[in-house]
Amino acid sequence: MKKTSYIEAITETLFEEMERDERVFLIGEDIGVYGGVFKATKGLLDRFGPERVIDSPISEVYIAGGSVGAAMVGMKPVPEIQFADFITPAMDQLIQQAAKMRYRTGGQWTCPMTVRVCCGGDVGGGLYHSQINEQWFFSQPGLIVVMPATPYDAKGLLRSAIRGDDPVIYFEHKRLYRWIKEDLPEEDFTVPIGKAAVRKEGSDLTILSYGLMYHRSLQAAESLDKKGISAEVIDLRTLRPWDMETIMESVKKTSRALLVQEGSKTGGVMAEISATITEEVFDYLDAPITRVCGIDVPAIPFAPPMEHFFLPNADKIVTAATRLMEY
């Protein structure tokens, strides 16, 4: 057991996977000499050299598309997109190439790769360094999308992603990098892609979230406990393909669903999950499904009070949960 932060878990995993499999290599902006703008790739250049830790020019199209090509000839690329805000040029390659490679070639060519994307708000990053745009990838068949909330999952999901055979968009939340530490087992473990985690059992309502919002939800659930409301807290972990079974079982048990998402409300991950809950377990519901989400504006604004206003937090979740219980 070793106390490990979320970002240390990522760095360690990259080390281990590169040791384990010589096909694994990294490419991204400032990841080599500088060790990454958040130091997620610190030390890797020294250990593995410039051929496997490639400081790329500012070329998101190439970082994504070049990784697709390298994967097609047997490499295991782990490209980094420095900020989710700057992933837009790479969309063409991720959506038109990575997501469709297996499909459009009848399964002949594949491109297993793990795109690390640093995302999320609550860090004062402003309009262009706080974005969280997982819903774009969530809606794209052919891609796997994960967002760990804990150091354990950061490690376990990264291992599963790198060792797997599919293109994975791995969202890492920058607010979590140094905030949470956790004892991690020394032995090799993985976290399966596609499985949610029931983090706290409860009987009155289900609070579903992921990433930073999982921590806000847990905080809220602790306050709700004090009010005599027993919330079950689920961390989705994998967004695509999401764990329908675990969520439906929980909603069947609690009959109330509160869905929490950091990004803007319209068209988000929780819109889809909400629709699926009504399709699958409508008869079990005692109240309308409720969402607590970021507001529908272009991105998280800079001024601290506005950023706070944008983001869901424990208080907002408690308020929504209390109303949901009163329905």
Binding site: F25, E51, R52, V61, Y62, G65, G66, S67, V68, G69, A70, A71, M72, V73, G74, M75, D92, Q93, Q96, Q97, K100, R104, T105, G106, Q108, W109
Partner: peptide, 25 residues
């Protein structure tokens, strides 16, 4: 032979990635 996509010149991008792979290997 890579089955192409319709997005013109995109295969120049992934082709470059293939060449990068060969170089690393």
């Amino acid at each position: 032979v890579i089955h192409p996509s319709s997005t013109v010149a995109s295969q120049a991008v992934i082709g470059t990635g293939c060449a990068m792979g060969f170089q690393i290997q």
